[in-house]
Write a protein that binds this DNA or RNA. Structure first.
Lengths: 193, 193
DNA sequence: GACGGCGGTAGACAGTGTCTACTGCGGCCT
DNA sequence: AGGCCGCAGTAGACACTGTCTACCGCCGTC
């Protein structure tokens, strides 16, 4: 019941996700994943012709989870566009800090089949949603560019916060105040609309 | 005159920089660097006990170059604080796009001796400079947090632009307009002060 | 009931980072 | 002047990696 009722394909991805969460992307060895799944080192090849494809399948789960999280927060908050953007931004940052290994993997383009992997399925929809909400917050702005700038800001914040550059430079341990600053920059001061 | 008047230490770093520029960080193999420097695969160990230290020395050059560039642009522009921040931001982005391999390496914390590597020497001074200039642009703002937000925004923009996410989402090929949006977000509209 | 093919095994290969034994040579001390 | 120490570089070994190939067993189909 524990192993054999899932296809090896899924068991490999599961083992990879455990390993990723425990030790980070550089621990995602083909052979170690196979070991954890209880099969020989050549077995993964039947399901994933190359290591890139296995890691891509693992990252795919991450993109799906992120998309799921943003979907639920987006559905839960109905307080107006600005609050929704804020909630989405917080969700994004929390994901990156909750699951640092996965987040890192998701942006290690050299480890994934570069290209459409998660972009089409989660980043672009999220980007479109951001664009729409920003258009509602500030109808005068170039919503797409502002959304792009905010997206970049969130990503950069996640990275610099994760490897302690920003906490060190700011002398803070909670990203909340910084996130407020980021949101105020792109959406205008908090009272705004 | 070509090789032997430089210490092997420098020749290794030089070879690594060529390799990095030509093929990216994943090509930075200890043995390949040694090959390019014309020595045996064990030779680097005399000067760099571990691969991390050799790659760190290579990245160090990148941080030095970035610091140099920001210093000269900072010295060259004397048009008021806002223009100086804009010039610095542009310099930062141009560095990331001019030398993608180096930029990538500089933020691959798993490949470098994590820690003070470039942070103390270039990021923090740059951060301090940004903070000071932002304080001049907008005396009411929390300059440190705004500087942190802008820094994160620049970093995220560099990353997302480099791997084509932002150009694709925005349908643009020049990062100028986006950079203007980013600067306007953190510094206020262009006329401001 | 023979058989073909799919899924997993086992071994090989080239390549990697690190470690260790070794060598050759230059500069120092007596 | 002569012996010697130590350092820089060599060469080989080891464990590990991803990929490839030959093999094998079992299940389902004609």
């Amino acid at each position: 019941m524990t192993e054999s009722d899932l296809s090896l394909r899924d068991r490999l991805v599961d083992a990879g996700m455990e390993l990723l969460a425990a030790e980070g992307p550089q621990a995602l060895t083909l052979r170690e994943i196979a070991r954890r799944a209880g099969v020989s080192h050549g077995a993964p090849r039947r399901h994933f012709p190359t290591r890139l494809e296995l890691l891509s399948a693992i990252a795919h789960r991450g993109f799906a989870d992120l998309a799921e999280r943003t979907r639920t927060t987006s559905a839960r908050t109905a307080d107006g566009p600005r609050a929704r953007v804020a909630a989405l931004a917080r969700t994004y940052l929390e994901f990156a800090l909750d699951r640092p290994g996965m987040y890192e993997l998701m942006f290690r383009h050299d480890l994934l089949e570069s290209g459409r992997l998660g972009l089409r399925e989660t980043s672009l929809p999220l980007f479109a949603l951001l664009t729409e909400l920003i258009g509602q917050v500030n109808p005068d702005a170039d919503a797409r560019r502002v959304a792009g700038a905010l997206w970049a800001n969130l990503h950069g914040t996640a990275q610099l916060w994760r490897w302690r550059s920003l906490p060190l430079a700011l002398g803070e341990t909670d990203f909340g105040p910084l996130l407020d600053t980021v949101l105020a920059a792109h959406l205008g001061p908090e009272g705004g609309r």
